[in-house]
Design a protein around this nucleic acid. Structure first.
Lengths: 359, 359
DNA sequence: CTGAAAGCGCTTACAG
DNA sequence: CTGAAAGCGCTTACAG
């Protein structure tokens, strides 16, 4: 009575004050009609006055409601280990909210196989979950999935890449352009003004040109553009589609020797940076600054060895965690969720790596 | 029936199988005695076999239990704005868990006033909360508070600084030593091998020598120690107790001109780095790399201007969030919580600052 | 040591 | 359009 009487107004209290039954209050609360305008007004008035907050625990218990959330993301295999971390974030998030009657359906597609994405999409739709966490790797197919979800009223949260956001409730990921700027800043800080820099893009034919990769490169270039002294600075550029050691050897040797000036920095626009690191290690090119993305096992190994100097990380674990939480807030707590949820752009070095690693 | 029959075993079911009543099962479940060893065994057996998971929502609702969590941290005032962010994290965490009947009592002490810490400690004890989030700014006093809490069975989570952890359930904060190493790595990466570096410590008499400040400096030095080439490298060193502009002017001018070699980098071991930045700006010392801690308003201003080059951040918001969550897991969900919860050591530049700022 | 009953605050048919 | 009753899964006295 003394300490805990804060906001303990119950439906019963409202009903009493309005001179109606609890059932009627409930009908008003959930807009399920069958209430005369007059009583509706009266009840709403009282609710507002008392700032009534429903007891969500009791509500969930009584309604025996169950939420099925689906997640459609790439499977983890040796060609693609990144998605392990978002999935861990999702599972941990699930553990926090499962008491609210939430269950998770997991759908994994092959990162390099458009068809498998389409197949799994169909399965998701077939299952009719109450919400979806989606990694829109294949932009076109993802867009049509999102549109379909819109039609059948399944709220979608996009994770990691942003596609067709207008039909989704939120995007959780990184600001790719800005992350490229960060990479450039770090690169520039460690080099001298006229040092030669190479930008390396990895692009598998199966996947195509991904928007966030393009943005990263643009961000990188724009750092130099916005700096008067470097306006118009020229970069070496390399587009790699074949990651075999032999090919890597060939194209990198070529790129490095293509100018009389010594190459001082390499920026790789995605997580495939370890392929470049392997080459640098083998050829004892220790004085080239190498910057890339993501804490893959291979990348971390080269970071610890000092071959990779910096990795940009996108907080994959948090991306997963926040995605499922966004859906939870939307579905269960009926709260507004932020549409754009950009995670910080983390700069990882050998020295701070330890505390970024997920258990 | 088809999809949602997963783990929907109820107390009633257990009771039925054991041939007892729900009340008895409950008594076993909560170890509140008054059950014959024989029935106890039987009930436990069935619980294990069926992997019974109690419905925590129903449990909380029926028990009408209320948890009061206290937080004892520095107040936010102009001399100390850092604690705004942990507090925001705590409030946001609270919002996530308030449905479980959790309320928060806020106790703020003056960062520079030992007495006020002692006073507020007494109030906390007097109130007898079920849990405490504590910023142990004054090591000695905090230790005895923690001991007292131990005696009266109030679980404590330490936030930001680590003191007397053996009597607490968790520490949430940063690895200070490592953060110093990170600062050194960044510093070193941008300078030439023999450039002169100055370490600046701010220390208010009222607070004394704080363990985490010492550790940061040690970490910074150890980076160079562990690098053969720099073994024995000498640093300039400055201990500032008076932050007036006049004094800052004097001591910094002195430190800078104390050697014929030009000073190239300054490492400030805490958030007071803006005092140094002000000096550098005023005296047009643009080519000195300046690294310090924490995203205070003043620091962010100088970071944007390019006077401060890097800030190390300790994720203050997350520190608050994780602290209250740790207590929640311990008290309500009865889960094990990690004892050491080190947050990543974030490297902030002008370019990635944007996405680190808390709303 | 054990069980039956009432209740937590909300929702869901059902009867009118 | 409205109310009374039963129930969600668990807990809490109370009676025996």
């Amino acid at each position: 009575m003394n300490k805990n009487n804060i906001s303990k107004i119950r439906i019963k209290d409202i009903a009493g004050l309005a001179g109606v039954s609890a059932g009627t209050v409930d009908r008003v609360l959930h807009n399920r009609g069958e209430v005369s305008e007059k009583t509706r007004k009266k009840v709403l008035e009282i609710i507002r006055e008392l700032d009534y907050q429903p007891d969500i625990l009791a509500s969930l218990l009584a309604a025996k409601r169950n939420f099925r959330i689906a997640v459609l993301i790439p499977e983890v295999n040796q060609g693609s280990t990144f998605w392990r971390y978002p999935m861990e974030g999702i599972e941990d998030g699930l553990r926090e909210i499962m008491h609210f009657g939430i269950s998770l359906e997991r759908y994994f597609f092959d990162y390099f196989d458009r068809k498998s994405f389409i197949e799994k999409s169909a399965k998701v739709i077939e299952s009719m979950p109450q919400g979806l966490v989606l990694a829109p790797v294949f932009a076109e197919e993802a867009t049509s999935l999102v549109k379909r979800c819109r039609e059948i009223k399944i709220p979608v949260v996009l994770v990691n890449a942003n596609v067709c956001l207008e039909n989704c409730i939120a995007f959780v990921g990184q600001d790719s352009f800005q992350s490229g700027m960060v990479a450039a800043k770090i690169m520039h800080y460690g080099l001298k003004d006229n040092d030669r820099i190479l930008i390396v893009n990895f692009m598998k034919k199966e996947v195509g040109r991904q928007a966030h990769i393009v943005k990263r490169e643009e961000g990188f270039r724009s750092f130099y553009e916005s700096n008067l002294k470097h306006h118009g600075k020229a970069f070496g550029f390399l587009n790699v589609t074949d990651v075999s050691e032999k090919n890597m050897e060939m194209v990198l040797e070529d790129a490095i020797s293509s100018s009389s000036e010594q190459l001082k920095g390499i920026f790789v626009t995605n997580s495939m940076v370890f392929h470049v690191a392997r080459f640098l290690e083998k050829n004892d090119l220790n004085d080239i600054v190498l910057i890339g993305y993501d804490l893959l096992e291979e990348n971390m190994t080269y970071l610890k060895k000092g071959i990779i100097d910096f990795l940009i990380s996108q907080r994959p674990y948090e991306q997963g965690f926040k995605s499922i939480m966004a859906l939870f807030h939307h579905l269960v707590l009926k709260k507004e969720v932020d549409r754009d949820q950009f995670l910080p752009i983390d700069i990882i070095t050998k020295e701070n790596l330890g505390h970024y690693i997920y258990k």
